[in-house]
């Protein structure tokens, strides 16, 4: 066997596997998105088997976009959730990375404590937060508000100040089970899990910052803020962009958290909506799936450009 064909052979399994993995399911989704295909139909049993004679053209896409009431809400909600998570993780990540980028006792332990949330499995993350921390009655959220109200109440009998505290309204804990608030709950738990990732990347990058440049800036009398603005931030531009891209890709397909936190309360994103459609209307599920692919690709193109550039050097 010649050298060249051997090299091809070594690469082949990985490429063929990934090619099949990408083409077959995606091809089927594309096909299903153009036909009428439902799992159960007493009226039109012919729709329950996929076949070309049930061709619907762009009908599924139209149905999803204009007739199903949840699609635009799901798109909006997907973008909202991803956007909030990105802002939180990047800002917190920057602040924390700057904070721990210094010598102090126990730095190693601090790093270990900080990175831990990233390795918690998503299902546990969601169950832990929604039940034990954010629950308005039994979670720490409920307990904290309750004990705060109790404290205020016990102050009612205080002379003079008591009249002031008796006018204090009784607080109600926020419930994270409604449509809107459960989106916040998802944002909180995912941001908790992914801030460590941002911190880790920013820290790695901070360590390669040009120290001489910084010393020169200090000699020139630059203050801390302008050092950060003019030296550190440009240096971190690429890591920030990468954190944003990678997180967008992961969070656009967020599923476990939504499923656990929001099942049945109306808070849904695109993957969750696809899951709902899949229980019967496969055509609509596939059309929604294609939309999700398009949305992810818009983000992916930017990422590939960035990574592609770094691959050159």
């Amino acid at each position: 066997m010649s050298d060249k064909s051997l090299l091809r052979l070594l690469q082949a399994p990985a490429i063929i596997l990934l090619l099949l993995w990408m083409l077959i399911p995606l091809g089927m989704t594309l096909y299903f998105s153009f036909i009428r295909y439902v799992l159960n139909s007493l009226r039109r049993p012919e729709w329950t088997t996929p076949s070309l004679s049930n061709w619907r053209g762009f009908g599924n896409y139209e149905y999803v976009m204009y007739k199903s009431k949840d699609f635009w809400f799901a798109v909006q909600n997907s973008v909202f959730i991803v956007g909030c998570i990105l802002i939180l993780t990047v800002v917190l990540g920057l602040a924390i990375a700057m904070l721990i980028n210094r010598q102090f006792p126990g730095r190693g332990v601090v790093r270990v404590l900080l990175i831990s949330p990233f390795f918690v499995m998503p299902a546990v993350n969601a169950v832990l937060w929604i039940n034990m921390i954010l629950d308005p009655v039994l979670g720490l959220n409920g307990l904290a508000v309750e004990s705060f109200n109790q404290t205020i109440k016990s102050l009612h009998d205080f002379p003079v100040l008591g009249t002031f505290f008796s006018m204090w309204p009784e607080f109600k804990p926020v419930s994270f089970r409604s449509t809107q608030t459960s989106a916040y709950a998802v944002v909180i738990m995912v941001a908790w899990q992914w801030t460590p990732f941002a911190v880790l990347i920013f820290m790695t990058s901070l360590q390669s910052e040009d120290q001489q440049q910084k010393e020169a800036a200090i000699l020139d009398g630059a203050n801390k803020w302008s050092q950060f603005r003019n030296l550190t931030l440009p240096h971190l531009a690429r890591p920030i962009a990468i954190v944003i891209m990678i997180q967008s890709i992961f969070h656009l397909s967020l599923y476990a958290e939504i499923e656990i936190v929001s099942r049945g309360n109306g808070n849904k994103n695109l993957p969750y909506l696809i899951g709902e459609f899949t229980s019967n209307n496969i055509g609509a599920a596939s059309a929604t799936g294609i939309f999700a692919v398009i949305l992810a690709n818009i983000v992916a193109i930017f990422l590939l450009r960035m990574v592609g550039k770094s691959l050159m050097d």
């Binding site: 990408m22 089927m28 989704t29 656009l252 696809i274 799936g289 992810a296 992916a300």
Partner: peptide
């Protein structure tokens, strides 16, 4: 780029 394919899109297939 195969990593960026949203899993949910190919759930039913």
């Amino acid at each position: 780029s195969t990593k960026m394919l949203p899993a949910a899109a190919v759930l039913y297939p």
